[in-house]
């Protein structure tokens, strides 16, 4: 079936089908959130920026959350060895991301002038890296469990 959304979907037909469900569910939840917010707007003054960011965040976190929990990211991790190898990859990827992020930050905004600026950037870096690591770890753990059950 031809559709412009195909470029966002994986080649594997099971994964493709599941992703389409996640996108559809996310869209319905997004629609309900927007309807809810427009009703709520009559009683509470919600800033446009806040409502827009909230809508995007809800949509993206729903789809990402469902994908992570579904355990279909690491389809070939079946053995303990493969699991440990993939865990090492996740460590390396997170470390690589943190290094590139820090480097780009320093290039774009320059070296922080005060201690508080340093703390701010390091806290941001640690939070994002930790989130990245935790989501990857959960996804790997769920995939490994699912794959073992399918042997």
């Amino acid at each position: 079936m031809k559709s412009w959304i195909s470029f966002l979907l994986p080649n594997d037909e099971y994964k493709k089908k599941r992703m389409l469900y996640f996108f559809s569910e996310g869209s319905i939840i997004l629609l309900l959130t927007l309807v809810g917010m427009s009703i709520l707007n009559n009683y509470i003054d919600i800033k446009t920026e806040v409502s827009l960011l909230l809508a995007i965040a809800i949509f993206l976190s729903y789809i990402s959350g469902r994908y992570i929990i579904s355990g279909m990211e690491y389809t070939d991790v079946v053995t303990e060895g493969a699991y440990r190898k993939e865990l090492k990859h996740i460590f390396v990827r997170t470390g690589g991301f943190a290094s590139i992020f820090m480097l780009l930050y320093l290039v774009v905004t320059g070296i922080p002038n005060s201690q508080s600026e340093w703390i701010e950037i390091i806290a941001l870096l640690l939070s994002v890296s930790l989130l990245w690591f935790i989501t990857s770890y959960i996804s790997l753990k769920r995939s490994y469990k699912k794959n073992k059950e399918l042997l």
């Binding site: 037909e13 099971y14 389809t75 070939d76 079946v78 794959n147 399918l150 042997l151």
Partner: peptide
Amino acid sequence: GVTRQTIGLIE
């Protein structure tokens, strides 16, 4: 042309 997981699920 699918993933190992898909074969497992079919089986």
